[in-house]
Computed example of a mutant assay.
Amino acid sequence: MTIPALDADPFAPDVLEDPAPLHAALLAAGPVVHLPRYDVYALARYEHVHAALTDWQSFPSGAGVGLSDFRREKPWRPPSLLLEADPPRHDAPRAVLSRILGPRALRRLRPAWFAEAETLVERVLAEPEFDAVAELAQAFPLRVFPDAVGLPPEGREHLLPYGDHAFNAFGPPNDLVEKGRPRVAELSAWVDSRCRREALAPDGFGARIWAAADHGDITHAQAPLVVRSLLTAGVDTTVHGLAAALYAFATHPDQWRRLREDPGLARVAFEEAVRWQSPVQTFFRTADRDVETGGVVIPEGRKILMFLGAANRDPRRWANPDAFDLSRDPSGHVGFGMGLHQCVGQHVARLEAEALLTALARRVERIELAGTPRRHHNNTLRAWESLPVRVTLGPARADG
C-alpha cells in the first residue's frame, strides 16, 4: 500500500494557531501519512493513534517522545524515567508515583483543594472582567499542586517557563525552542534544586518519593528525577486543560447552564474540554522493528508522530466531534495518552478541575468572552496566552 505524503509543517505558526485544517487533511489522507519535511510517519486517526499508544513494545518511548532520537542525539536533560523510558526501567518509578498519587492521597487533598478554589473564585469574582488564564487557569494549579508536592512558595514562577521549554523541545529546533534556550540553564538549575530532599516539605508528594527510595522501591539516584517528572508535567498540562474548559464555557453558554444546573458534571466537562481542545497535541514514538499499521509498514528505527488532537476529533470515533457537548461520554479520549505511559497525574488534574469548576458554577450565572483570546504557541501544547472573560454573578447554589 502506497503511503500518502503531505508537505506540511505541524510546527509552523499558522498550524499551531489553528491545527484543524492539517488535522482534516491527515484524517482524510489515510491511516499513515509521510511528512517529508521531518521524514516522520504521522498517525491521526483514533484507531491507529490508540493502538500505537498502547503498543509500547512496537513503539517504545526510550528513544524519546520528541523528534530527537536519543539513540543518536544527546537529550538536553536526563530523560524522564516515566515518559521517556520503557519497562523494566519505567516500572518502579511508575509504581511509586501511581501509589503516591492514588485515591487515598486525593481523598485527603479534596477538602483543602475545594476550599482553596472557593477562596480563589471569591477573590477573582470581585471584578466582573478578568483574564481567565492568569487569574484562574494558572493561579489555581500554581498554588495547590506545588503545595502538595512540598515546594516552598518562592520561585514557583519558574515552573511554567520550564515546562514550556520542555514541551517545546519535543518538536524541531525552531524559533520556539530558541526563544527558551537562554533561560534553560537557570530554569533547570532551579528545578533540580527543588527536587532535592532537603528542599521539600516533609509531608508532600516529593518527600514520599524520597521515602520510597529509602524503602528500596526506587534508587536514591532516581528519586530527584521522579520529583522532576511531577514538576515538569504536573502544572502546564493542567493549566492548559483548565483554560480549555473555561474557553469552552465562555463560547458555549448552553453548556455552562447545564453545568450550573448540575455541578456534578464538572469532571465530565473537564474530560470533554480535554477531548475537544487536546492541550497535549502530539507525541512521538520510535518503531522498534518494521511495524505494520493501517495496512502499511513503518520501518524499524523511524519516528512516528501521533496527532492526539486529530484523534480526539476523528469522526470515525466521535459523533459530531467538533462540538463541545456535556451530554457526550468523552471517556476513551487520548488527551492524557493511553496505555503504559498514560499520564500518571491525570487524576490529580481532574480533582483540580472539579474543584475550580464547581466553585465557579456555584457563583457565576454567565461567563462570556470580553475580548479576543490570544493563543500561546508551543510545539506540543495547545495553549492560551490570554482569555479575557466577563462574568455575571447569580445566586449561590449548593454543591451538586
Rank of each mutant, 00 (worst) to 15 (best):
P224E: 11
L22K: 01
E300K: 13
W56K: 08
V144W: 10
G337A: 07
G339L: 01
L265D: 11
G206P: 06
V65A: 00
V49I: 08
A112P: 00
L151V: 06
A207Y: 02
H220G: 15
A319L: 13
A245E: 02
L246G: 08
D290A: 10
L326R: 06
P36F: 14
E47G: 12
A355F: 14
E135D: 14
F59T: 04
D14G: 05
W76N: 08
L360G: 05
H215W: 11
G180D: 03
R123Y: 05
I209P: 13
G216Y: 10
V124A: 00
R302S: 13
N168W: 05
Y46H: 15
A20P: 01
R260D: 04
F205H: 01
P13V: 08
C195W: 02
I304Q: 04
D290I: 12
L109S: 03
L356K: 06
P299T: 02
E127W: 00
R123P: 04
P103Y: 09
E178N: 07
A250E: 03
E129D: 04
Q277Y: 13
G150F: 06
A139T: 03
E365W: 01
D91M: 08
L16V: 05
L200V: 01
P36R: 02
D236S: 15
L82R: 00
F283P: 03
P279G: 00
Q346H: 10
T358A: 09
P263V: 15
V235P: 04
A201Y: 00
L265T: 09
A269E: 13
R390A: 13
T372P: 10
A12D: 11
P172T: 09
A112K: 06
P330T: 14
V65K: 00
N168M: 08
F307H: 04
G301M: 05
G150M: 04
V121H: 06
N312K: 12
V291H: 09
G206S: 06
G204H: 09
M1G: 13
L393Q: 06
E271H: 09
P60N: 02
T392G: 12
